[in-house]
Amino acid sequence: MIFTIAARELRSLFLSPLAWVILAIVQFILTYFFLIYVEQFITLQPSFAQYTNAPGVTEIIVAPLFDTAGIILLLITPILTMRLVSEERRNRTLALLFSAPVSMTEIILGKYLGILVFNFIIILLLTMMPLSLLSGTNLDMGLLMSSFLGLVLLASSFAAIGLYMSALSSQPTIAAISTFGVLLLLWILDAASTTGGESERVISYISILRHFQPMLKGVFSSSDIIYYLLFVSTFLILSIRRLDADRLQH
């Protein structure tokens, strides 16, 4: 059932130009950044020869590329997730799901899975670029994998927030703006934490990007993974409850 809903979600996404436009533009921007980082590596490479423990090609190219991709995903997720529930509510197609033998949990998980698959496609296309360097050099596959996983977790958290915001409203644009607001806030928390001090440390711990940075350095900590899993499940449970509340007494 979850897969049926996810497949419908993906199909609708790819039937509109939106998915293609997003894939194309994101790919274009990320390729541009990729080329900048490759260029940077080429200019820096001679000076690295003097050091014994110089950073490798993966650290110079992959880490900043995935960092940038995180920001770009933050910007496009609201557009992808805004329609998930709110548009169905607006077009009154939710009745189809509500009167079918499907639970609220299945509806939400189906929709979430649809977006996850789309995010996965974006990240896969992104990962192809550093992988293409394999033809000329060796890559630190461990670091690449950890960055890949980190970005998948980050994108999944963005999507969970987007889904919840979409479940809250009946207007896609409002869902998009509020998702954007929340994501931006979580990003800013990270920037605010750089000033140091006790309270900032606590705030920065909440920041969604702070748990992403270690993975770009190849530090794969279970507490970061748990942070993301908790984050995702919290917003999924909230979405299920919100959808359920549509039927209940107001």
Partner: peptide, 13 residues
């Protein structure tokens, strides 16, 4: 089987 007032159809399919 339920047909609501507004048929729950997806226009893009």
């Amino acid at each position: 089987g339920y047909l609501p007032e507004t048929p729950p159809i997806y226009r893009e399919l």
